[in-house]
Design a protein around this nucleic acid. Sequence first.
DNA 1: CAATAAAAGTTGCATATACAACTTTGTCGA
DNA 2: TCGACAAAGTTGTATATGCAACTTTTATTG
Lengths: 144, 144
Amino acid sequence: MDAENYCIAGRLRMLSRIMTSLYNGAFNGEEVTLPQAGLLMYIFAKPGIRQVELAQLLYIEKSGMNRELQLLQRNGWLTDNLKQGLFLTEEGRVKAKRCHKIWKALNLTMREQLGPEAVSGLDALSGQVFAFIAPAETQQTTTE
Amino acid sequence: MDAENYCIAGRLRMLSRIMTSLYNGAFNGEEVTLPQAGLLMYIFAKPGIRQVELAQLLYIEKSGMNRELQLLQRNGWLTDNLKQGLFLTEEGRVKAKRCHKIWKALNLTMREQLGPEAVSGLDALSGQVFAFIAPAETQQTTTE
DNA sequence: CAATAAAAGTTGCATATACAACTTTGTCGA
DNA sequence: TCGACAAAGTTGTATATGCAACTTTTATTG
């Protein structure tokens, strides 16, 4: 049947849209989006990290990463100089903590809702995709 | 370990970026992107389908769908009136067929590369996500 | 049929990305 | 130290989306 042959990329895009929408909803009160919250939490965990490293970790093109960071900066969450490593402002650290609280609860709930089979399915898929695009590199262990 | 608690939405976004990039590369020669090719193939299979139906099927907001369709129209692949159902031009049908050929081969290759475990993992995840967001509706069987 | 309400389609505005090209910074060897 | 090359960062331009608001169509119903 055709249902067995759905588009892998298309399906991932669809699931990405759906889940992004759910997570974004949870961050509404904080006036941040999921991608923004993710970056805040990441920089909180690794202050001083460089743009290029963050971009590689998340498989985002460096120019897109740069623009995301400029956005965080405009919101007052990142310090001035983006070239010398990324650092949160005090406001940014507060925001990151609040986001982490929301994220942690939601992500746990989501794992429970989806169930272990779906989650391990995502694990298996992730592993294979990472192995496919970077056969030699070490395993992916990012937070986002 | 923290690796066990990665963000579900973030991971899906990452995989979506990665796979989109791979598929887009395959469509380079046709001067279309994966999302565009997907719409062309879908309309090819269901001529006359309405914007709103396509949007619901793919979980894309209707305004975004409208703009994607206008883009296809500008490229000469869709007929004039988007309000009376969507129809490909002759050029559009040719393009859709060429895209389908490319897509079919790539998608099959990708399924083989990722392996049955990863693919059934994606199936399991998809099923749970669809069940979560639309508990009562029938099963998802889209092509994208 | 006319008035409205509901559904579909569009547009304004904003974010999230990608690719290419350009600029700045950093490194290394002569 | 200087110049060349590499790496990182930035900007131009375009697509893919989302939300809200507005317009046009379509349906309902008195």
